[in-house]
Simulated scan of single mutants.
Amino acid sequence: MTKQNNLLIFILTVGVFGILTTEMGVIGILPLIADHFQISVSKAGLLVSLFALAVAISGPIMPLLFSGINRKKVMLLVLGIFVIGNIVSVFASNFTVLLIARVIPAFFHPIYCALALTVAATSVSKEEAPKAVSKVILGVTAGMILGVPITNYVASATSLEMAMLFFAFVNAVAFIATLVFIPSMPVKERLSYGSQVVVLKKPITWLAVVTVIFIGSATSSISTFIAEYLETITNLSGNILTLALFVLGLASLIGNLVGGRLLMRNAMKTAIAFPIVLGIVHLLSFVTSKSTGPMMITILLWGILFAIGNNVSQYWITSAAPEAPDFANGLFLSCGNLGITIGTAVGGLFISGLGTQYIVLGGLLFLIMSLVSILLRNYMYSPTTKQLAS
């Protein structure tokens, strides 16, 4: 990659980090928000659930509507909306205002993230595309996993308002960097809405959609409850628990880079191996869960594989519909959020029915279904990228 491409991808990574930190970072300060507005924590949780619902709804639609507009202008628009929304959140006089200030930007979330993935892939050669995309997904993972403890730390060290201002600051940095360093990026070949939506007529697209939902459900059924799992099963607390979560986050960042390289070498083998290897690690957790040292190894493997799952999911949908990259990346984001919703619900059912330790069984169930859908696609279509996309 050239220096210009590296700078472009770095700015896109910062941008998605800011947007995902805005989405997920609030998890770390929900109790503070509940106290501040004198509401229940469950009501404060609407800041997370309604945000995710807005992303799931707008995922396939908004990137499609903005697909013909200059890429730079669209990125500035979305980042600007997030900056304004976060500033309004700082001065929100009541919970309703805060909720509105978060939900409105959420509808624009898929536009930037889908665009960032598309731009990263098209800024380099076809062979280097998975590697470039993995760097942008690194920003997604960092926002989802590191955004929570960072926001919690800022709020604990200063105030709730400063934590909200942190969201605005990161998005503002991405806005300024985009304005100054990214050149105008007009869409050279505008695709009609119909020519993009038509990819939904292809069976391979729906196979990809189902696979991504299964993968998202498999990982989120465990990752959502990872803190509770480590507290109740491994008996971690305090600094050791913090260290374990930090290991999970660091491993996820490594996993993004590993996932990109593996997809470059052999995408189909990587996709097939992913649910098998993660399934083995799930089973390993039954052996290691009671001991801190061995469990740290399992956490490390979980972090790496969860991140590889994001890379596989993004590749799986975009390779099924390469003729409509913006729409395909929108589908990826929508399906990923739907997977989080389903996986969290199923994980909760396993906790209430069997106990916290058995959330890995829910993950195994979804991994088996994802493997079946991956093998079905491999059987129905040739493994080469060209034939996959036909």
Rank of each mutant, 00 (worst) to 15 (best):
L371V: 12
K126A: 15
L138K: 08
V83K: 01
S67C: 10
S223F: 13
S134N: 09
G85W: 01
F108T: 08
V180K: 07
T151V: 13
L367K: 07
P322H: 07
I340Y: 08
K290A: 10
I145R: 01
A271Q: 06
L236P: 02
L245Q: 01
A271K: 03
I137H: 05
L46C: 09
I297M: 11
T234H: 04
G147Y: 07
M296P: 11
I299R: 00
A172V: 10
S237E: 11
A92L: 12
S125Y: 07
L146V: 15
G362F: 06
G15S: 11
V88D: 02
T356A: 13
I304Y: 07
A116H: 00
I340V: 14
T178Q: 05
L77M: 13
G347P: 10
V41T: 13
F17C: 06
S58P: 02
I368F: 12
M380L: 14
A106P: 03
A52W: 03
L375Y: 04
V209W: 02
V124F: 05
I29R: 07
N311F: 09
V209P: 01
S370K: 10
T205I: 05
A328M: 04
T158G: 09
Y315H: 07
R265P: 01
F286M: 06
F51E: 10
F181E: 11
L331Q: 05
R71V: 03
L138V: 14
L248R: 00
P294S: 13
K135N: 15
I215P: 10
P294C: 13
I280A: 12
N5C: 09
V148R: 12
K386Q: 11
V258H: 04
L179Q: 09
V247M: 10
V173L: 11
V372D: 03
F107G: 00
L284T: 13
A121K: 09
I297A: 12
L53H: 04
I299C: 00
A328P: 04
M162S: 10
V136Y: 01
M185D: 04
A92Q: 09
W206A: 05
T13Q: 02
A218S: 14
I368G: 02
A273Y: 06
G59Q: 09
I69N: 02
G330E: 01
I104K: 01
K135W: 08
R265T: 15
L262M: 14
L12R: 02
S334I: 02
V124D: 05
L32E: 15
L376W: 14
L241D: 01
V360Q: 08
V16D: 01
